[in-house]
């Protein structure tokens, strides 16, 4: 142990910043921290794309032949569903990551620092958003390889991707509440699925609602995942876009506005 420098001459002098600039700065530091993690363990990122690719192959080549989709080929019907499913499963990563931070005592340390209480959550959800962008690029490539085509234009396709990322970002905040409430990361994942599963599969993501029993149909047609999937179909395959895109945006922004403060409130009590 060297005794050269005095460790504690006087408190460090922080740079003065406005409250908002401070909160954004804190969030950026934590985003960077999480992204470094993704880059250092690329295996995790790689394997998180394996599952959606298997889903593409399963529905395209195994189930697809048995599913009738009026007005478009099944692969064009399927891929918007796969995209939305993929970003939603990616949002579960938020709950797993936060549960790990909590379990390792990192949240305890962060909470004892004089930073914005939204920063840890903003940093995590933003890093997961960046990760979702990467995964989307990959799944799109796979989609094009198996015959998916955009029948509108590039801008509409990009708008569709932006919409899905926004929707997933809103869900990330919801999953962060689960992550901060779970005893460990495995449980966080298990707790997320009962929520995720009916939303993803009792929807129009993979099959038209017309074949579902009458009690399930109203839910399957109007729940947010279906709304977002239908908006993506309209944007990539043509047809009336505003009918689906507007409610999809409302759902995404609405969820974000409700879930963000709830998550921050949960964070303030997390130990």
């Amino acid at each position: 142990m060297t005794t050269a420098t005095n460790v504690l001459p006087e408190p460090a002098t922080p740079v003065r910043r406005s409250k908002l600039a401070g909160a954004v700065g804190d969030a950026l530091v934590l985003t960077e921290r999480n992204l470094i993690g993704y880059v250092r363990i690329p295996e995790a990122l790689f394997f998180s794309t394996v599952q959606p690719i298997m889903f593409v192959l399963l529905f395209r080549y195994v189930f697809g032949g048995a599913i009738a989709t009026p007005g478009m080929s099944y692969v064009d019907y399927l891929m918007p569903g796969i995209f939305v499913q993929t970003v939603m499963f990616g949002a579960v990563g938020t709950s797993i990551g936060l549960a790990e931070d909590l379990h390792k005592g990192l949240i305890e340390r962060f909470r004892s620092l004089p930073m914005a209480s939204s920063a840890v959550l903003a940093g995590r959800t933003t890093a997961d958003l960046v990760r979702n962008v990467f995964v989307m690029v990959l799944i799109s490539a796979v989609g094009f390889l198996v015959g998916f085509r955009v029948h509108t234009n590039v801008l509409a396709f990009l708008a569709a991707i932006g919409l899905m990322l926004l929707f997933a970002y809103a869900l990330s905040w919801g999953f962060s509440i689960i992550g901060l409430s779970a005893p460990n990361s495995e449980t966080a994942q298990l707790m997320s699925f009962p929520l995720l599963f009916p939303l993803v599969f009792a929807s129009t993501a993979f099959v038209p609602a017309a074949t579902m029993p009458s009690w399930l149909r109203p839910f399957a047609e109007h729940q947010p995942v279906s709304v977002v999937v239908n908006a993506v179909r309209a944007l990539t395959q043509g047809g009336p876009t505003a009918r689906w895109v507007v409610p999809a945006l409302l759902w995404s922004v609405g969820l974000l506005v409700v879930l963000m403060p709830l998550a921050v409130r949960r964070y303030r009590r997390a130990i």
Partner: peptide, 10 residues
């Protein structure tokens, strides 16, 4: 370094 930046050091 991250902790320093969270304390708003340059």
């Amino acid at each position: 370094e991250h902790v320093g930046r969270l304390f708003h050091l340059s």
